[in-house]
């Protein structure tokens, strides 16, 4: 479904991502783990079209979509829940959701709103509240719901558990598992590696802008030295 080949992205002279390759199959839940600064967010931003790659290619559903603008990527079927959620705090909860469905026809939009109520019951209570007043957990749910409003065939999430209290981290991972059970295709960046490996079919480990390991959760956990792969003490 998604094939990334040799993707390199630079900020000025900084190579934040070097020659990264990965694939996501239809219906798969793929984790992308690695420490702070490893290039995970850069990779997501490049796929979503916020950043222009310096080299490499992105293919989605057998189409070359390298360098497409974000709104075009969304129409192609790829949605990103950005890091720090970035919900629109000047808009109400329902307005955030409606904006998320800007590309869907109006009739489907109302059906989708009902679907989101079912999926995220706690949001309904805050329906017309300004999104700026939501708690961290609610805001994360809103960010995910907002992305789902475009009916994406691939949903990418960047650090959905970041900055959440442990009990809310549980909620987020339950949600990921829930979406997975509904057959959604997910690509999720997480720092919380063990939790992510629990719910993911496969995962890639990214460090210093490079993919350094790949495998199923059991394979990666089974290596026993995940911590070293992860933070690079093996080379120190």
């Amino acid at each position: 479904m998604l094939e990334i080949d040799g993707l390199t992205t630079r900020y000025g002279s900084i190579s934040a991502l070097r020659d990264a390759s990965l694939t996501v199959g239809s219906g798969e839940v793929v984790g992308l783990i690695g420490p702070n600064g490893a290039g995970k967010t850069t990779l997501m931003g490049t796929i979503a079209g916020l950043l222009k790659p310096a080299a490499g290619s992105v293919r989605f559903e057998d189409r070359n979509v390298t360098g497409w603008a974000p709104d075009r990527m969304l129409r192609a079927g790829v949605a990103l829940v950005p890091e720090h959620r970035r919900i629109f705090t000047d808009l109400s909860v329902v307005e955030n959701l409606r904006l998320g469905g800007v590309t869907t026809p109006p009739r489907e939009r109302s059906e989708l709103l009902d679907e989101m109520v079912e999926l995220f019951p706690s949001l309904e209570e805050r329906w017309t509240t300004s999104a700026g007043y939501l708690s961290g957990g609610e805001a994360q749910q809103l960010a995910i719901a907002r992305a789902l409003m475009s009916r994406p065939r691939l949903l990418m999430m960047d650090e959905p558990s970041l900055g959440l209290a442990p009990v809310l981290v549980d909620v987020v991972f339950e949600l990921i598992a829930n979406l997975a059970s509904r057959g959604r295709t997910l690509l999720v960046v997480e720092q919380n590696a063990t939790r992510m490996l629990d719910v993911a079919d496969r995962a890639y480990v990214l460090r210093s802008g490079e993919v350094v390991a790949e495998g199923t959760g059991d394979e990666l956990l089974g290596q026993g030295d995940l911590f070293e792969t992860f933070v690079g003490t093996g080379n120190g």
Partner: peptide
């Protein structure tokens, strides 16, 4: 430290709840 880095189901560290600032 390993738990903080990798995250773990048995997150036993009792702290306040900071947001990603």
């Amino acid at each position: 430290v390993q738990a903080a880095y990798l995250g773990s189901a048995a997150d036993s560290i009792e702290t306040q709840q900071p947001r990603g600032v």
